[in-house]
Simulated scan of single mutants.
Amino acid sequence: MTTTVESQVRSAAPSWLTPRFADRAEQVAIVILWGILAWRVEFSDNPWAPLLLLSESTIAFFTLIRRPTEKLSMRLGDWLLAMTATCAGLLVVPGVVLVEALVPLAVLLFIGGNLFQLWAKLVLRRSFGVAPANRGVKISGPYRYVRHPMYLGYGIVHLSLLLLMFWPLNIVIYAIGWWAQILRILAEERVLSQDPAYAEYMKQVKWRLIPGVF
């Protein structure tokens, strides 16, 4: 007999820990971390630091307007992965420009990556989320090319920010964040693949993140 991920885990969770409660708690956490990032950027000497805040602001905005769902993974591991992947960008320290000659390239990567992830967010609109959940299957826009275009956009942006505000700690933060991001993708697809529409979509779009690689 087939059981869904959420039904498998919900029976072991405290009665008060409902998907709706977890959804709201996640929103509060993201907003708080965004506020701390804004404070760090405000007192940074790096002239490119506001770009870091700009790139992370869309996460806070779309987190606040997203559609609630009951089809939300209640696995602790899924939540830890999702929050680690999301919080990585919010914990970056505005460092120094790594190589001045690479600034134009970094700015182009930043713009391109942000436009791509914003395109994906506009397709998702209120279906955007952090923890693995089914808020509706989207297959248009950049989702025609890879199954997780928003995360691809994040990766391009993170590369640009490492060039614009390099700091050894930032390499560690992004490395941990992307380790969690890959595992998060697998966790998301475990939830979404239970939807026949998404299962069919997986057959149509082969690659998760980078065509020909993953």
Rank of each mutant, 00 (worst) to 15 (best):
D78C: 02
E26W: 06
K206D: 09
V107C: 04
R20N: 07
M83H: 14
V130Q: 08
E6T: 12
G35A: 11
L152F: 12
M83F: 13
L124N: 10
G95T: 00
S57R: 12
A106N: 02
P94K: 09
P104E: 00
L108F: 10
P94F: 11
P94E: 09
A12F: 15
Q27P: 00
V28I: 14
S193M: 07
P196C: 05
P68S: 07
P104W: 01
R75L: 07
F116N: 04
A12I: 15
P14I: 13
P132E: 01
A175V: 13
P19R: 03
R66F: 06
A38H: 08
P14T: 12
A12P: 02
G136Y: 02
A49N: 09
G153V: 04
A187I: 00
L81S: 04
R66Q: 10
T2G: 09
P68K: 02
E26A: 12
S160M: 03
I182T: 10
Q181C: 11
P132N: 06
V9I: 14
V123G: 12
F128I: 11
G89L: 09
L124H: 12
L90K: 03
M1W: 11
L186K: 15
R20G: 05
W178G: 02
D45E: 13
I111V: 15
T84K: 03
H148R: 12
Y198A: 03
N114D: 06
I111C: 05
T69E: 05
Q181A: 14
N170C: 05
M74H: 08
I59E: 13
W48V: 00
M83C: 07
P94G: 09
A187V: 00
I176D: 00
L72T: 08
D78Q: 07
N170Y: 04
V31I: 14
H158M: 09
I182E: 10
Q204E: 14
V130T: 13
V5T: 13
G113R: 08
I36K: 11
K121N: 15
A133T: 05
I59H: 13
E6D: 14
V31T: 14
F110I: 01
R10W: 08
W207S: 05
W79K: 10
G77Q: 08
V93S: 09
R126V: 07
G155E: 05
L186P: 01
